[in-house]
Measured scan of single mutants.
Amino acid sequence: MASQGTKRSYEQMETDGERQNATEIRASVGKMIDGIGRFYIQMCTELKLSDYEGRLIQNSLTIERMVLSAFDERRNKYLEEHPSAGKDPKKTGGPIYKRVDRKWMRELVLYDKEEIRRIWRQANNGDDATAGLTHMMIWHSNLNDTTYQRTRALVRTGMDPRMCSLMQGSTLPRRSGAAGAAVKGVGTMVMELIRMIKRGINDRNFWRGENGRKTRSAYERMCNILKGKFQTAAQRAMMDQVRESRNPGNAEIEDLIFLARSALILRGSVAHKSCLPACVYGPAVASGYDFEKEGYSLVGIDPFKLLQNSQVYSLIRPNENPAHKSQLVWMACNSAAFEDLRVLSFIRGTKVSPRGKLSTRGVQIASNENMDAMESSTLELRSRYWAIRTRSGGNTNQQRASAGQISVQPAFSVQRNLPFDKPTIMAAFTGNTEGRTSDMRAEIIRMMEGAKPEEMSFQGRGVFELSDERAANPIVPSFDMSNEGSYFFGDNAEEYDN
């Protein structure tokens, strides 16, 4: 993207840094990872977990959730003011799984939030270390993106479920800051804005008074975040219109849905970061690795190297396929839920299948599930090659597409044709070009129609051997075009429920 120079890199967003050079960025990201790792080690000690239990991804998720809940100030305040039966607002906890007599047992633990905050700050040299908290939120978000298709949420806001490739980060909490905003897809931002506008339509006082002023500035800020994701002048001009509207209503909703559809071809720039579970960072720190000293990046080879040398386990339900569970977590670790499966298959070195073909449910185990038949197995999170994460949407291309997802959002900077089903997408653009945004709409449609099938995206960008740390010898991959490109292809993934 041309304006790259004016933006802070995501590592800076990730670490609240002012302008830093590459070495400083690597050190501050490393410091953040160190903090998460030290916190995780301490929690495993508190909970008396064995090494194996500490490497269980379900335990990692519970521990991450506990610290996120302990620092969720708004919710904590709300819980104190609106006490609900049987919930102690000062405590947080969740299921911890232990191996007892050759069987997995679930144990519900409860801790004072104050105590968890103390352990977290102690692991982070006394700081609140917001960057580390956001990092864990993005890992949870990436896992949700890989596990669930947001059909219901899309339909509720009037969008087409086939636009799911635009929904990265749709389950990120509001408090995820600049680093969170960077990884949100165009569809996620559109959905947040539509929800806001709908509230304004239904509630006369939404934009009024002292609160209304705050609401208005939040609305304009979200519009600017979305505008910054678009790469064409016409899309940005249309966002200006939406932002400046005196009284946002149905016309703005129409414009936003139009823009979301246009992003299936004229893709937005959305950041991709490899955020790993805390149970990967903990053992690495415990083994003596100093992330701050060595430096770390979320968008280069580092996460690949770390996963190459990590042992992570997962509980497996009786009829689940461990290899499929591994694929789910591998995609989440690489922030690749909406990437082209052919690119992923090449990088991973084994075939990556669409969601609907995987015999696996989510990673988390519900409290009512029976533990008797639970097994555990090693997650295979290694890769054959590594590639640089991208934040450009890439230019655009036609490809055989599917009944489910009709476009992709690249996660890796790797040369390819970008699949999208042009006739299906263009069919949504018939007729409606009147109104105050008509010239911009016409211009956007013209650009979409001009998108050429034979153009290559990320020209000359390749993948790298894991021994090639400096990215000196790019390998331009070859793809098996007979395979499906979309992950949520004609899909039956479970729906995400809060």
Rank of each mutant, 00 (worst) to 15 (best):
S3A: 00
K7Y: 11
K7M: 11
Y10W: 15
E14H: 04
T15S: 03
D16G: 14
G17I: 05
Q20N: 07
T23D: 02
A27M: 05
V29R: 00
I33C: 02
I36V: 14
I36N: 13
F39I: 14
M43D: 07
C44K: 00
T45N: 02
T45Q: 02
E46G: 09
L47H: 14
L47A: 04
L47D: 10
L49I: 01
L49M: 01
S50Q: 02
S50Y: 01
S50I: 03
D51S: 00
Y52D: 04
L56M: 02
I57C: 12
N59Q: 09
T62W: 06
R65C: 07
M66H: 07
V67G: 01
E73V: 13
N76H: 09
L79V: 00
E80R: 01
H82P: 01
H82Y: 06
H82F: 00
P83I: 12
G86R: 00
K87Q: 03
K87C: 04
K90I: 01
K91E: 08
G93D: 11
I96S: 06
K98S: 08
R99S: 06
K103V: 15
W104D: 07
M105N: 04
R106G: 12
E107C: 12
Y111A: 15
E114H: 02
R118C: 00
I119P: 06
I119T: 13
R121H: 14
Q122W: 02
A123D: 12
N125K: 08
G126H: 07
D127V: 13
A129T: 02
L133C: 14
H135D: 03
I138W: 10
W139E: 08
L143G: 08
N144T: 06
T146Y: 12
T147S: 06
Y148R: 14
L154Q: 03
T157R: 04
G158Q: 01
D160A: 08
C164T: 12
M167P: 04
Q168C: 04
Q168N: 02
S170F: 05
S170L: 14
S170I: 08
T171L: 06
R175A: 10
G177F: 06
A178E: 10
A179H: 10
A181G: 01
G185W: 10
V186P: 00
T188Y: 09
M189S: 00
V190R: 04
M191Y: 02
I194M: 09
M196C: 04
R199F: 07
R199D: 07
I201F: 12
I201Y: 11
N205T: 00
F206D: 14
S217Q: 02
S217A: 06
E220H: 11
I225S: 01
K227R: 06
K229R: 13
T232V: 01
A233T: 15
A233Q: 00
A234W: 04
A237D: 01
M238D: 06
M239H: 09
M239V: 02
D240K: 05
D240F: 12
Q241W: 11
Q241A: 08
R243I: 03
E244Q: 07
E244R: 10
E244F: 08
R246V: 08
N250D: 13
N250R: 03
N250S: 09
A251V: 04
D255L: 13
L256N: 10
L256E: 08
I257T: 14
F258E: 10
I265W: 12
L266K: 10
S269A: 02
G282P: 12
V285T: 13
S287T: 07
G288T: 10
G288H: 10
D290T: 15
G295R: 04
Y296Q: 12
K305P: 02
Y313P: 02
Y313K: 10
I316Q: 10
P318Q: 06
P322M: 07
H324T: 13
S326H: 13
Q327V: 04
W330S: 01
M331I: 07
M331C: 14
A332V: 08
C333W: 15
A336R: 05
D340G: 12
D340S: 14
L341Q: 05
S345R: 03
I347D: 07
R348E: 08
G349H: 10
K351Y: 01
K351D: 10
K351F: 08
K351N: 09
V352K: 13
P354D: 07
G356M: 10
R361Q: 08
G362P: 08
Q364V: 06
I365V: 08
S367E: 04
S367K: 06
N368A: 12
M371L: 02
D372M: 03
S377Q: 02
S377E: 13
T378Y: 07
T378C: 04
E380C: 01
A387E: 13
S392F: 05
G394S: 04
N395T: 02
Q398A: 15
R400M: 14
S402W: 08
Q405F: 10
S407R: 07
S413N: 04
V414H: 06
L418F: 12
K422G: 08
P423D: 00
T424P: 01
I425W: 11
I425E: 03
M426K: 04
M426C: 00
A427D: 04
A428Q: 00
N432P: 01
T433A: 12
S438R: 02
M447G: 09
M448V: 13
K452R: 02
P453I: 04
P453R: 00
E454T: 03
E455L: 15
F464V: 00
E465M: 10
S467T: 04
N473H: 02
P474G: 09
I475Y: 09
P477W: 11
M481T: 14
S482H: 01
N483G: 13
S486L: 10
G490Y: 11
E495W: 01
D497P: 05
